[in-house]
Amino acid sequence: MNIKSALTILFLFFITDQAFAAIDPVYEGANGIRAKVFATNCLDCHSSTLTGSARNGAPPSVNWDTYEAALPNAPRAIVRAVEQMTMPPAFSGVPALNDEQKAAMLAWQSAGFPRAAATTSTAADFSYDSSILTLPVVNVGSQMYNATLRLSSNNSSPTGIAFVLESAQPATAASSVNAANFFPTTGQLTVPLVQLMRNGASQGQVSAELALVPNSSPFLFLLSSYTSVPGAQ
């Protein structure tokens, strides 16, 4: 994805706060396989809470409501729901998987049917050598993105420092207290921890507050303030 495309997509996310991210190829999570595939297309019959006729003929041993139950039967789900397209059965009235769901199931299989996304560091870092601020996770409402911004001087900034957005894309890393947060209604970007780096060595840590300049293109964030984090080197 080129920078222009990334900026266009990010603009839509920031202004409308809509969810356009693909289904995560993991079982758990609000955007995972359970929530986006099994809950919508399978659990009306394949749930361990259902018995007898309420299962509509689903085998008692085939359930998708827990990871432990789903894992042994996951390869079967790929065959029946993705390859053969015989599940859900036509008579059930439950919709068949759409292309996005099929792709997510195949990606889940390719990844080895993981339960959850691997934990990834969400702390930001700024490199004095490249003048790049890297934000591994930016929470925007219920969505997560990673972004890179380049240092720029700006007389309108309270600190004389600004950052120009260079790239952005959906992120799947788990959020944490160190993740950045963007608030579309105010344009505020808070970064609780930024590791300052020079020649591969830490120069300390700060927290930062930035503000999006309205209608800027590319997106320009003014550094409103920054504070040393206690215990920083």
Rank of each mutant, 00 (worst) to 15 (best):
P170R: 14
N56A: 06
W108G: 00
F182L: 09
A117Y: 09
Y27P: 07
T119M: 02
D99E: 03
P89R: 11
V37Q: 08
A39C: 08
I15S: 10
L193N: 08
S152A: 12
E166M: 10
P218K: 01
L97S: 01
I161D: 05
S127F: 02
V194P: 11
T40C: 01
A35D: 11
V62G: 09
A22W: 14
A54L: 10
V229C: 07
T51D: 02
P88H: 06
A19L: 12
D125I: 00
A232P: 07
F163G: 09
A70H: 11
S110E: 14
L50W: 05
G160C: 04
V94N: 02
T148W: 13
I132G: 10
I132Y: 08
N181Y: 00
T134M: 03
S167K: 14
T119K: 10
F13S: 13
V140G: 03
R55Y: 06
S127Y: 01
P158L: 06
E166T: 06
A118I: 04
V194H: 15
V137K: 11
A147K: 01
V177T: 13
V137T: 11
L135H: 11
F13T: 12
T120W: 04
N215E: 07
I33L: 05
V82W: 02
T148L: 06
Y226L: 08
Q203Y: 07
L193M: 10
Y226T: 05
Q205H: 06
A124Q: 03
A123Y: 02
S61H: 13
D24W: 05
Q84W: 09
S152D: 09
T49L: 12
F219R: 09
N146G: 07
F13C: 02
L151A: 15
T227I: 04
